[in-house]
Write a protein that binds this DNA or RNA. Structure first.
Length: 249
DNA sequence: CCATTAAATTCAA
DNA sequence: TTGAATTTAATGG
């Protein structure tokens, strides 16, 4: 009766080195708690949701009813600013959590989330998770660490947007994408539009294009459409080293 | 910010 | 797989 859940569990469950075999992280929550999350005796513990590229699955202002763990694909999480401008809060990949801020007393999501590629999501209802949190202290503790970490990142981001120059923020964004998604064939392994770089860095598309052009001239990056290659990570890091903002993942 | 041109991506035949 | 249609990038005002 839980065939879907049982199948899912096995995907996370071949650890030799303790690393999750989907996201390759040693501290992966989905991997660590897959038994609890997917093999629970509780009914309807999880369902898998399929999102096509460009599909929005979390809408700002919609009532909170649960949260998502990304099974595959990538997602951007954003908030709409005062004049309709989009502020990208973060990019998320496999095994990361989306929609967690709605938990507790909050009634409505304060963020939207949209799939950047075809994406599969594990959906967990609020009721189910509350039950798990109450019964499983280790899980609750790890979730608390996760929340604390998120808060720290968010505070760093405020600092970066208010104190760094446009160029530094764009460089910081490039390093963030590189750190988080790595590179494939010499290009960042996540294709983003200049607008998306801008929305993350807190600038305009034109500014990003101009910074990219400058970086190309200086031989720090290469760009072919949406494929951006970082030529010299260390030199880029140097540019923002005085801010030491490249600590968050 | 907007307009123009170049370049890249998508899509359907 | 191609190339026409559409979208996105780049530049200059």
């Amino acid at each position: 009766m839980h065939s879907l859940s049982l199948n899912t569990n096995s995907e996370y469950n071949t650890p030799k080195n303790g690393h999750c075999n989907i996201c390759n992280k040693s501290n992966c929550l989905v991997h660590k708690y897959s038994d609890i999350l997917f093999n629970s005796a509780l009914p309807q513990s999880s369902t898998v949701l399929k999102c096509k590229k460009g599909q929005q699955f979390l809408i700002e202002g919609a009532p909170v009813n649960g949260l998502f763990f990304i099974k595959s694909g990538t997602v951007k999480v954003f908030r709409t600013g005062i004049n309709g401008r989009e502020q990208i809060v973060r990019f998320a990949r496999a095994c990361e959590i989306v929609g967690h801020r709605g938990f507790g007393t909050q009634e409505y999501y304060s963020i939207g989330a949209i799939a950047l590629q075809d994406t599969q999501l594990h959906y967990f209802s609020k009721e189910f998770l509350q039950e798990v949190l109450v019964k499983t202290p280790n899980f609750t503790y790890d979730m608390m660490l996760f929340y604390a970490n998120e808060l720290n990142k968010s505070e760093n981001k405020v600092k970066s947007i208010s104190q760094m120059t446009v160029r530094e923020r764009v460089v910081d964004t490039l390093l963030y994408i590189n750190r988080k998604f790595g590179n494939l064939n010499g290009y960042l392994n996540l294709p983003l539009s200049r607008k998306e770089y801008a929305d993350y860095a807190g600038t305009s598309e034109e500014q990003v294009i101009r910074v990219f052009s400058a970086l190309k001239k200086e031989n720090l990056i290469t760009a072919k459409g949406k494929k951006i290659g970082i030529k010299d990570t260390d030199l880029l890091k140097k540019e923002i080293s005085e801010h030491n903002f490249f600590l968050d993942s």
